[in-house]
Design a protein around this nucleic acid. Sequence first.
DNA 1: GTTGTCGGTTCATTATTTGAACCATTATTT
DNA 2: AAATAATGGTTCAAATAATGAACCGACAAC
Lengths: 258, 258
Amino acid sequence: MSTVDKAISLLDLFSIDTPELGLSEIARRAGYDKATTRRLLLSLSRHGFVEQDAETRHYRLGAGLTRLARIREARLPLLQTALPFLRDLAIATSETVHLSEAGNASLLTVLVEHPARANRVNVNVGEYLPLHSTASGLAYLAHARPDAVKAALGNPLTAFTSHTVTEPGAILAEVEATRARGYSIMDQGFEDGVFSVAAAILGSGGYAIGTLAIAAPVVRTTKALAAERGQAVAAAARQISERLSGEGFGALRKRASA
Amino acid sequence: MSTVDKAISLLDLFSIDTPELGLSEIARRAGYDKATTRRLLLSLSRHGFVEQDAETRHYRLGAGLTRLARIREARLPLLQTALPFLRDLAIATSETVHLSEAGNASLLTVLVEHPARANRVNVNVGEYLPLHSTASGLAYLAHARPDAVKAALGNPLTAFTSHTVTEPGAILAEVEATRARGYSIMDQGFEDGVFSVAAAILGSGGYAIGTLAIAAPVVRTTKALAAERGQAVAAAARQISERLSGEGFGALRKRASA
DNA sequence: GTTGTCGGTTCATTATTTGAACCATTATTT
DNA sequence: AAATAATGGTTCAAATAATGAACCGACAAC
């Protein structure tokens, strides 16, 4: 493992549940000597990737990461374009709505709006979503480049619950159904008790650049509600797509099929 | 320069104007050998810090940065809380409104809303703002910890224009006036022809965690307009502060003075 | 057709990184 | 109150990783 790999792996120790860590704890969790860990942290700190609290001496993720992320986002402002739609959907459905951004054959949750209810689906930002077993994943695959679909289904797939479909043929059939319907449906394929619908947000090239999803407890979901939420999320995804690219959704869809 | 420093410095080559770069160009700009550069890029790529386009072979900033930035932001959702206020202010004033996030004695612009006008102030996300010569900087200093103020004014300060105040005593007087008024005023201290007002967004500790600013061409600014914008930005900053911390603004202000 | 530049690779040489042992301070346990 | 444990931090001989000149095939420019 290279020194650069070691340094960056330290950043992965921070999470929503663990926003701050001390030097000794970071070293322990990383499995590196304290001296090594400190040197790596100093390098990261020089570039703003971590910040050390002046009082507690604890480390946390730094503004340098935000800076680069904002530069990355500036090219295509998915987050700020989608935010109002997310909020409206969360209010209208009283369920969890989340936005994911597509990378190279991956989906990263970047925005979540939780409803003010005790029984709700909790989704964390900053987590990658599996493509085969989430509504977002299926929505993405329905509008992905063929090589991305191949890459996603090319390796043995994980069964997260007893409902997870792991046979590529069956997943592709579901992807086709998603494309026809305009939104995907996932019934407890990733987590027991969770029912989700999602739709793809298309970029100028006609391929998915993100997804919008509504996740609800199964106990609060009927066939009619599922269809209603599906249509709502598809409509919102369409509007976000049109807002981002300045083109009609139909034209975008046609482009990827060419 | 350590290997980690070298690797991360490659990321700084990307900007809004230069979102993608090829291997040879990155090596040239960084001043490293192509073999070295490629090895460093591969390490960054393994963690999602850069992505290589499958067709053009060019590199760009990756989702791994967004992931960590979203985790960092999840603790305190400044961006998504402020966005609606930014938009409303941009519409109401027809001027550029921008949000900056406070780090360790630094301010990073994370959100910008430009008006649909030809003559407008252009602000880029992902750029650090000087504290002594911008409205945002003064607003921040007015509500910063004393050691951060000391650090900011402790070294010789840059005169960006002939209007820039660089004498610490005079800056501190302006900081005091900002605190009293509830918003700062900067008349071409950072860039000729630009007039800005800003207000601090306070965190639970009572100190500034960000700033909200309105930047306009001087030719479109009167004393009355300045006061009007100042009050508007102060009101918005106050609402964002209250929304984030769940406390009254007056209580927040009192806490930092204790 | 020729020349230049691209992204990419190799391995002897060079430079950087490592971590055990140590420190002062603070926190925890007895 | 005293003893022990854990913290963040430092050093430098030994160990390991990184380096880059020279090379490659493919593609672009002239």
